[in-house]
Design a protein around this nucleic acid. Structure first.
Lengths: 336, 336
DNA sequence: ACAGGTTAGGCAAACGTTTGCCAAATGCTA
DNA sequence: TAGCATTTGGCAAACGTTTGCCTAACCTGT
């Protein structure tokens, strides 16, 4: 570990350019910002030459301080390891970049305390808005909402009140899954879910069960099992264990997320239950990888790639001082 | 869309606290920063009361401008959709948070122009350092390196020169895969790879082939195929197609990434070739999901979860003005 | 020639911090 | 009582921008 010679040349600021050009800082600032009518054509030309010659780039920190607005948006997301979350992050990032913003990414691990810590930290960073994926109820979140901070909720609604939201109609997604299995001829169907489910999973399961009831399925033929835990993979595995503890494997199974379906699949494999021959599984998300390595899984595709554009749209609505709205994107059941 | 009443209460700054406390801004600043010996105990007490009562939080923008250092690190990553990249992002994010930093995430889509655009944008944001995952050669990158900006390379080395690097010994990973298949008794083995592979995939394949040669395998028994493309999923599929165009499926196949293995698997499934019974596949990465839905895949596990800590370590070395080093983390072949 | 308008550009304050330096007041020693 | 060190705290500059306001100089029409 030897000392390294830093070649740190001094940064070039408006002052640098102004001195070289023999004009004032104000003039350079105006020209850089496109106000060309406030200087003579020759001056504009000269300054622009110098700007590119010196490689001047406006310092966003100074600009933010003065303008009291940054080009930074914070995204709070639980466990990035979840492919669905990663897909959302990727989509939002791209949309923000197109709109001229950058994204600070915060992994809250689904913990209220971390969510609050990040909300506070982000406020110090003077971020311009927040994208909160699968928000949990927390003090800091309520405070931010009360303050009127621009927040777009994704996946899960604002636990407290209404507001900007981007997601799908989870209830209907559950209904669609029910329709699929019912019309597939299944008359004994199981469903598994996490013990402390989010509103999203609850809605999916709720819609699923309600629809089956509507279709005339006797309650006794609808088997349920749950399991506690954080990772949907493990929840799926454990809930499936509970499901088959006393009775044989069901011919059809609905899981409110693909990850849970993977968990159930693992147990089925271990039990030498063939999927989908002996047990048809329906999940929700339709992860990219399904087409490649999980063709046995029927899944409700959520158009995560379209989330980013909607999120940015909502942010812009909020920035304009208007009320945000709920954006429900179309889902689609994918059978392979 | 009705106008929303904003309740934007004025932000509380050092000046607010100072005015309330009847002391100068300087004094408050010092107390907030823990310099308690520059004020009388009573003053300190009074100011601290006010700080928490008013909910004062230092404005990072002002601080950054003055100190000329921010607590922001930029991470440039190609396609977050790749589970391996998401794992790295999650790990780095956590490590940065622990060290008191936040992460701006930039998805370069493996494009040199986007990489440069982001490098420039990040410089304007006065980020404190860069984490570049699978860097591509680009003008802006060279410029940043020449400038002495603190950059940690992950996965792929600095295309131009040496520097801080976190990753695994790809060559050896390839060798380990070769050993595994050879000791499994396979004497006809295939390998597929992308046409324009990165140094990482090239090294893996290189080590694999070199090791097989060392073991005495005739070159004729080592089949190769390649395919162009961006997504490793599609590369794997297409390369596998090329592989079996004229000859039957090989009994063993090495893929320099799990995604490529998934692509090959899909083709195998379509061709009704049983994996792993008729074709053993070895990949690299060992994605989390393998244990759940791809138990047929043997894979070289890369400890992505440990990357974050090493990355932050390297950043701190660079910030101390010292020379960064190469951090090769241990990999491990996982058989299920 | 003069009023009024336009053009070209500078001054300086402000955003929120940090920090070197100064100064008054207090305490201590000789 | 003089001399000196310590405590306590304020002043003001600086970081890089933006922008309201000011002021020359020039132009135009009567």
């Amino acid at each position: 570990m030897t000392k390294q010679r830093r070649i740190r040349q001094e940064p070039v600021s408006l002052a640098t350019v102004a001195a070289q050009a023999g004009v004032s800082i104000a003039t350079v600032s105006r020209i850089v910002n496109g106000e060309v009518r406030r200087a003579s054509p020759e001056t504009v030309e000269r300054v622009q030459q110098l700007v590119s010659a010196l490689g001047y780039r406006p310092n966003h920190v100074g600009r933010t301080l003065r303008r009291r607005e940054s080009k930074i948006v914070a995204m709070l997301s639980p466990n990035l390891d979840n492919p669905a979350m990663a897909a959302i992050a990727a989509s939002v990032e791209t949309a923000l970049r197109t709109a001229g913003y950058v994204m600070i990414l915060c992994d809250t691990h689904d913990r209220a305390d971390l969510q609050d810590e990040y909300l506070n930290a982000m406020r110090s960073q003077v971020v311009q808005g927040y994208v909160v994926v699968n928000a949990v109820r927390s003090e800091g979140l309520s405070a931010a909402v009360a303050r009127g901070d621009p927040i777009v909720f994704v996946g899960r609604r604002n636990p407290d009140t209404r507001g900007s939201f981007v997601g799908i109609d989870n209830w209907r997604a559950g209904m669609d899954a029910a329709d699929h299995l019912w019309s597939g001829g299944f008359r004994e169907i199981a469903v598994i879910y996490p013990s402390q489910g989010s509103s999203a999973t609850r809605d999916r399961v709720g819609g699923f069960m309600a629809r089956l009831e509507d279709l005339g399925m006797p309650t006794s033929a609808l088997r349920q099992a749950e399991a506690p835990g954080l990772s949907h993979l493990e929840v799926g595995y454990a809930a499936a264990q509970n499901l088959v503890k006393k009775r044989p494997w069901p011919p059809a199974l609905f899981c409110p997320s693909d990850l849970m379906a993977y968990g159930a699949y693992r147990l089925a494999s271990e039990a030498h239950v063939q999927v989908p021959k002996e047990c048809s599984i329906v999940g929700v998300d339709d992860n990219t990888l399904n087409a490649w390595i999980a063709p046995w899984l029927t899944s409700v595709r959520i158009p995560y790639a379209d989330f980013g554009a909607r999120v940015v749209e909502q942010l812009q609505v909020l920035w304009a001082g208007e009320q945000g709205s709920e954006q429900l994107l179309p889902h689609e059941l994918i059978v392979r």
